[in-house]
Design a protein around this nucleic acid. Sequence first.
DNA 1: CCTGCAATCTTGACGCTGTCAACTTGAATC
DNA 2: GATTCAAGTTGACAGCGTCAAGATTGCAGG
Lengths: 208, 208
Amino acid sequence: MATGRPKKRYHHGGLREALIEAAEQELAEKGIEGFTLRGVAKRAGVSHAAPAHHFRDTGELLTALAAVGAQRFLSGMTEREAAAGDDPRGRFVATGRAYIEFALANPALFELMFGSKRPDFDEPIYTTPASQSFRVLVDGIAALRGDDPLTSREGRAAVMSAWSLVHGFASLVIAGRVRFIREDFEADPTGTIERLIAPVVPRPEEKR
Amino acid sequence: MATGRPKKRYHHGGLREALIEAAEQELAEKGIEGFTLRGVAKRAGVSHAAPAHHFRDTGELLTALAAVGAQRFLSGMTEREAAAGDDPRGRFVATGRAYIEFALANPALFELMFGSKRPDFDEPIYTTPASQSFRVLVDGIAALRGDDPLTSREGRAAVMSAWSLVHGFASLVIAGRVRFIREDFEADPTGTIERLIAPVVPRPEEKR
DNA sequence: CCTGCAATCTTGACGCTGTCAACTTGAATC
DNA sequence: GATTCAAGTTGACAGCGTCAAGATTGCAGG
């Protein structure tokens, strides 16, 4: 019989990535408030102090995890936007829908990215994809308005209204505070999102 | 000199209330992620195990604290609404503003009430004021629409749009993710809120 | 008054947590 | 082949929530 499977190597090989994966599982199962570094180490099959050789402390691991989430978040929005065609309104609605669907598909990760203070959100690995996501939002509004929204109070308020709407919806649904709309959403996700965000992106015939 | 100040009584007297007060301080200073039961006990000047005689565990103390927050939240909205006069739109905007101002004035408490899983949100002490707040929202929309919004998908979406908008705004500002709008807000809170929520409560002349 | 009891608070212990220090392993470089 | 150093291990520490047992006190019934 040849070499047994490489189960008990002393050196892991790709422990850093394995820890991030394990951390995502731990976060998804326990939530941010039940998240434990020792639990992550156990999932990765490694001793409790091993993570210290790859992450200074728990916050640094959570920063890396938040960055992974931000990257996935950005990808989801840009892919949906590209698939939506040329109509500015259709593209914008698609990104809003991607925002909500990411949040509902990755609730704990979403919480980590927007509701926790443990990661360091000033780290470039996080700020880079996060800023790009913000750019997607601003550009979408710009295409609808025909100007740079950040240069006027009205424009900034328009950006903020749209962002607040999808973000608030995602947060409230995740928090489990709005069962009445969750039913509508599961029965008809597209229509529900359309009705939800209609106030901030009026249909063409309703404009003016 | 008469009795020295009653500093070292063995029995506290009103420890339960004192613990809730201390818990609010602890929460405000450390945030939900740094909140510690032993820290609360220390603030109240009692031993680390004293709280157990008034709250089964930390979650029960946090439930009581969330209930206090929900009550204060409700009071702020109803007071503002009453002070706003008779115009349905003015009343509704006032409640929205009260929502946002409560969140910004009590960020950690707001996080506890909407972003944490540690309190038991099914406890009547919490659900009672929370349901009343929801009622304020629904009644406000009803006055604007002239029907019961909960009976139609469009109505429910309208409720959800308004709630999501103010909730998302508060969450994002608290999370520190939108410095650009915070400046606008501090320079002109009323106008900023007006512009923000304008999409969901159009001015009369813009209606129809 | 005073006696006993139950409520309230303290002390001490347990297992779990994150982090640090010291040691071991093994792979790559000279 | 010896050495070195990154990547693992074990063990320790203080702080955490919670439980059990003992100390103190207010109070009700004699």
